[in-house]
């Protein structure tokens, strides 16, 4: 059996304990928040932490609650299955519910957590392989090497951001609550990701993501998630699309957003999408709305050029960008989704 490298396991019971442990261990530590990404990566020796800090016993990190201001707060250790099945999330944040329901397969959604998914490591066909495989190829920028196998001569890692829930959270304007032993900070999720495949998250080694706070969208909020993958289960996204439409009482789009993932090292917001969609009225003038949607799909196509960083046909992934952009927006407008082939 493929074995985990050895490490010391810490299982703190409280957040301060966890933060103190993290402060002591620093970059030597890995945080286990479900383990469905971390443990395979450790088996592949992509990470060899000397200390693993498991958060499963830490109290207060799970649960979905409505704050006084109507915001929805989700503990970082809340299982993805719980996010997917929550009536509150489904009603208020449909794109997030849909995205969470499409992560991996049923068992991994029980084990995997929202925080873990947000912090999912970037993925690449030349990275997510065993140590033997990578040594045979020659190590790359992401881990232990100096070259890129995706882009010949490339000096920047282009491993793909692959978390399904992130684009949904970005359209929803989520705020990440990040704790360190000496302070807590609130970080808009938009400012959290950087286009660096080696580490695409702005999280210090001694910080923990503790909570995801999502402002309550207005009553006319519509959202949907589209996921492109080969199989109907288990697979990571080859493309993820989150769409948001906020309709006025009159049914006119007041605000819109479209965020894509699995293309590059950071998720990408389609520039100009909001402007193109604002003012259209899917219910009253569907043809005009569809024209606007097609315009946004075209913007998405132009702004996104997938690289061969993930397995499979990257040109096809590129062709699917406008298709999934359009379908996801239409699904959102119709109060439907997810956009998924099964």
């Amino acid at each position: 059996m493929l074995r985990l490298p050895s490490f010391r396991l810490e299982q703190p019971d409280t957040l301060p304990q966890a933060l103190a442990l993290l402060d002591q261990a620093g970059p030597e530590a890995a945080v286990l928040a479900g383990g469905t990404d971390l443990l395979p990566n450790m088996k592949h020796e992509l990470r060899r932490p000397s200390v693993v800090i498991a958060l499963s016993r830490v109290k207060g990190l799970t649960g979905i609650a409505e704050a006084a201001d109507g915001a929805i707060e989700i503990g970082a250790m809340t299982p993805l299955a719980e996010v997917a099945q929550s009536a509150l999330v489904a009603r208020a944040l449909p794109a997030l519910a849909q995205a969470a329901a499409l992560v991996a397969g049923p068992q991994l959604r029980q084990r995997g957590t929202l925080g873990g998914n947000v912090l999912l490591d970037t993925r690449c066909q030349y990275v997510n392989q065993s140590h033997f495989w990578r040594s045979a190829l020659g190590f790359c920028l992401k881990k232990d090497g100096t070259v890129c196998h995706v882009v010949a001569g490339g000096s920047r890692c282009v491993a793909a951001a692959s978390a399904d829930t992130v684009p949904a959270l970005m359209t929803l304007g989520a705020v990440l609550e990040v704790a360190r032993h000496d302070r807590t900070r609130q970080l808009p999720i938009d400012a959290f990701f950087v286009a660096d495949g080696i580490v695409n998250r702005r999280l210090e080694p001694t910080e923990l993501l503790t909570r995801v706070r999502v402002p309550r969208p207005a009553a006319g909020h519509r959202g949907a998630y589209g996921k492109l993958r080969e199989r109907g289960s288990i697979d990571f996204p080859l493309l993820g699309v989150a769409a948001r439409l906020d309709l006025s009482e009159a049914g006119v789009v007041e605000h819109a957003d479209l965020v894509l993932t699995s293309l590059a090292a950071a998720p990408r917001r389609v520039a100009g999408a909001a402007d193109a969609l604002r003012g259209s009225a899917p219910g009253h003038a569907p043809a005009e709305f569809e024209t606007a949607v097609r315009r946004v799909a075209e913007l998405a196509r132009r702004q996104c050029r997938p690289l061969p960083n993930l397995p499979g046909d990257h040109e096809w992934r590129g062709e699917m960008v406008p298709v999934y952009a359009r379908r996801t927006l239409l699904a959102a407008a119709a109060g439907q989704g997810p956009v998924h082939h099964v």
């Binding site: 066909q125 495989w133 199989r231 109907g232």
Partner: peptide
Amino acid sequence: LHRGPSLLDYRLPTSVD
């Protein structure tokens, strides 16, 4: 190299496929 010697990258259809 084998492009993906794992049951993640060599995709066996699941029950929904």
